[in-house]
């Protein structure tokens, strides 16, 4: 894990109509590093991923911020130039691997698409990549269709198509959510290994703290369109300094829990973008909230141990 970050997101803001979806989100990822963005559904993590790829749905606009890929701002380059970025410098994998593959096209040709060549010309390279992502019997698999492969294999195919052109950045949007637990672990191990071997910077979008603990070097916890807390995974899991992170970690059921005891939950629900007020967006559900939290937005500030927290009460939680 080195020097210049592969991807820097600065102050990214997204809006749908007048409602802000994502508000000043920023982070950076170094080559070979896995950075997780974790949060509940609706917190803006998936649209953040789409914004980085510049594949936002028509209704959603980027209203501010920069996206630096290898130091170059790609947030305003023309679509034609962006097509040269996608698949080459930056790739993406999706939540449901079988849906992310065209059912009528062989997996080999879909991987070859990332190289912008017909499969016949790059067959050897595709076969090597299939072996690298752990597909057994690649000579047979390369000419098969997605429906002939399992979900886990399809995600390996997606990873192969995303990484074959050696991009600097991989965006993985809930890559294991649709898979069985054992397959999940295999796919995470694969991502981890490939990130290190190929020095790919990985942005992992997930709602699953278990996945974060498994493979992320650093984590950014998002809540209602903002980053609540960010820093090295080990530190944040050991001592969360934002009440939301703390409650999120406390709500993971453990084997040591007393049988039939109540599951820990966070009371209330995530506010929708039209309900965002002036203060901390977590205030209405937060056990530590006071008058200041409701009136003023807590800034994301460094706490000194490489971690950033957006809470007025961070010191009190230490």
């Amino acid at each position: 894990m080195s020097d210049a970050p592969a991807l820097v997101v600065e102050n990214l803001s997204l809006a749908i109509g007048p409602a802000g979806l994502v508000d000043g989100v920023g982070f950076q990822v170094a080559p070979g590093e896995v950075m997780a963005i974790v949060g509940e559904s609706g917190c803006g993590k998936s649209v953040t991923a789409q914004a980085i790829m510049r594949l936002l749905p028509d209704a959603i606009r980027q209203t501010g911020g920069r996206i630096l890929l290898g130091g170059r701002d790609i947030s305003a380059i023309p679509e034609r130039a962006m097509r040269a970025v996608r698949g080459q410098l930056m790739s993406m994998i999706f939540q449901e691997p079988q849906a992310a593959l065209d059912p009528l096209t062989t997996v080999g040709s879909q991987i070859a698409e990332a190289l912008r060549q017909p499969l016949g010309r790059v067959r050897g390279e595709v076969l090597r990549m299939l072996r690298d992502v752990g597909i057994s019997d690649p000579e047979r698999r390369i000419d098969q269709h997605p429906f002939e492969l399992s979900g886990g294999m399809c995600q390996r195919i997606m990873i192969a198509s995303a990484l074959i052109s050696r991009p600097a950045v991989l965006i993985a949007d809930e890559p294991t959510t649709a898979l069985d637990v054992t397959i999940q672990a295999q796919i995470l191990d694969l991502l981890r290994r490939l990130a290190i071997e190929r020095q790919t910077a990985v942005v992992l979008i997930t709602h699953d703290m278990g996945v974060v603990a498994d493979i992320a070097d650093r984590v950014a916890v998002m809540y209602a369109g903002r980053i609540a807390e960010a820093g090295p995974t080990a530190e944040i899991f050991a001592a969360p300094r934002h009440p939301y992170t703390a409650l999120l970690l406390a709500s993971i059921p453990r084997l040591s829990d007393v049988p039939k005891s109540k599951l820990a939950v966070i009371e209330g629900r995530v506010p929708s973008p039209s309900e965002y007020g002036p203060g901390c967006r977590f205030a209405s559900r937060c056990p530590r909230a006071d008058a200041r939290c409701a009136a003023e937005t807590p800034p994301l500030r460094p706490l000194g141990d490489g971690r950033l927290t957006a809470c007025f009460h961070a010191e009190a939680m230490a």
Partner: peptide, 19 residues
């Protein structure tokens, strides 16, 4: 999703439609 995935691979919308 496969259309988004094809575009994430660098295909233009037109190419994704055609292919």
């Amino acid at each position: 999703d496969y259309v988004s995935a094809a575009r994430a691979r660098g295909l233009s919308l037109g190419a994704a439609v055609a292919r």
